[in-house]
Amino acid sequence: MLFDLTLLTLALTTFASANPISKRAPKHLSYPLHKVEYNETHEIAKRSGHSSLPLDNYYDFGYYANISIGSNKAPLHVQVDTGSYQLWIPESKTGDSLNKFDPFISKTYKNESKPYEITYVGQDSVKGYYGTDDLWLPDGTKVPNYEFATVYQYSRSTPFWGIAGSTVKNISVANAMRNAGLIDHAAYSIELGALHAQKASLVFGAIDRAKYNGNLTILPKGDGTGVLTNSVTFANGKKFNIGINLPIDTGAPFTYLSKPIADPILTELSGGKLNSDYTFDCSIANQNKNLTFNFNGVNIDIPYSDLIRQSGSKCVSTILVDTFQVLGDNFLRHAYVAWNFDTNKVGLAQATHSDKTDLIDFYF
């Protein structure tokens, strides 16, 4: 009988390890984003240190979320920005009917008596003061003691909601969520969807395995929100070395590169001859070709259709020349990115643009 019982125990143990009956879902907060498209000249301001960034973009996108702040749940329509870590909101005296906040109405607001200032390229500084209050997500989840800025001077009425990591306790929303016990990791993953998709996927605290091909390649986080970009490979197999840290940023509609890097890429994209006004043959966008960004162990293909855009009667590239360098939305629409700010690592893979969901815990 003892022998039989031992066999039964072994059999049950083997069955349990090979066929887990249930798997604990990771603590997460799924966040729907929607895309706003501008089919005309539209002024967009973006921070970039002391460099100069063109503000008039011929055709651009922004990825937006609806959140609320304070005990009165003041509604906000904010542009999600993976390149910064702060939220600022116009105060009630200056904000429009949607994006404004009155700290005197919210019973949970605490003024930190700490000045706030950030400079956007080509425009005046945004100035205000820091405070904390409850942040409310669309599903009713409350993120307590979230630190943000209420501003009285600003150059655009739609706030940026920076979601990158920070060493400050609750100024990063991922930190605030983790500290409140809503997620286990100060981390998020994002997939913007295809070029003409109207929705994007943002998940705090978990990775969506259905949204990328193969396995995530785990890379060390560079300066800021950057990742070391080794090179690009053209459709004809030629390779051009880059070897620089490039931020990955939803707040930038396009990819911006310095002239020594951008010009060789744009020359190859144009078929060998780059026009002095940086215009392109519009038929290039219809070619079934990719420009491939190469990282350490993973390659991300960007189709030509997301690199060439109509601008009036001409076509131009969504890779622009500037001293401020960043991989923008035209890159992110084809990459699945998972940031873990607790470990300062990033997972990167080719995006699938799948509607399915398969959430797993952060493992790196």
Rank of each mutant, 00 (worst) to 15 (best):
G131Y: 00
D355G: 10
G222W: 02
S97W: 12
T141M: 05
T167L: 05
E191W: 09
L257V: 09
K46R: 13
F3P: 04
T255N: 04
S68C: 15
D263L: 04
V346C: 05
V151C: 02
A194V: 05
D355W: 06
P20G: 10
A235S: 13
Q123H: 12
L327W: 03
N340R: 02
Y256Q: 02
L55T: 15
N145C: 05
F204R: 00
Y85W: 09
D81V: 11
V337Y: 00
F364C: 08
I44Q: 02
K46T: 15
H185E: 12
L5K: 09
F104G: 11
C282M: 10
G162T: 09
L33Q: 00
N290M: 06
S106V: 09
K93R: 14
H50Y: 14
N99S: 06
L55Y: 11
K356N: 14
L98K: 10
N299S: 15
D342P: 04
I69T: 10
G224A: 09
Y336K: 01
Y363T: 15
Y63Q: 03
Y38F: 15
T217L: 03
S283I: 12
S166P: 02
A349F: 00
T255L: 02
A16Y: 07
V173W: 00
T141G: 10
L137G: 11
D208K: 06
I190Q: 00
I44D: 01
T357R: 12
H42D: 14
T9W: 02
N241P: 10
K27N: 12
Y152P: 00
V232K: 01
S30Y: 09
N344Q: 08
L246Y: 03
P144I: 11
Q287P: 06
A11E: 07
M1F: 07
G243I: 06
D281I: 13
D124M: 11
Q123L: 13
T158A: 07
P115Y: 04
A186S: 09
F204Q: 01
A65P: 12
E91S: 11
F254H: 09
L182A: 12
F148T: 05
H77L: 10
Q287G: 09
N72T: 15
G181N: 03
Q287W: 04
S157H: 11
Y116H: 08
N111Y: 02
E43C: 13
K259H: 12
L219H: 01
F364A: 03
T41N: 15
N296H: 08
D133Y: 02
K221F: 10
P247C: 08
L2F: 08
G328E: 02
N340A: 05
N241M: 10
K100G: 11
R156K: 10
D124Q: 13
D306S: 15
A65W: 00
N344V: 07
Y146Q: 03
I105S: 14
N111S: 13
L219C: 09
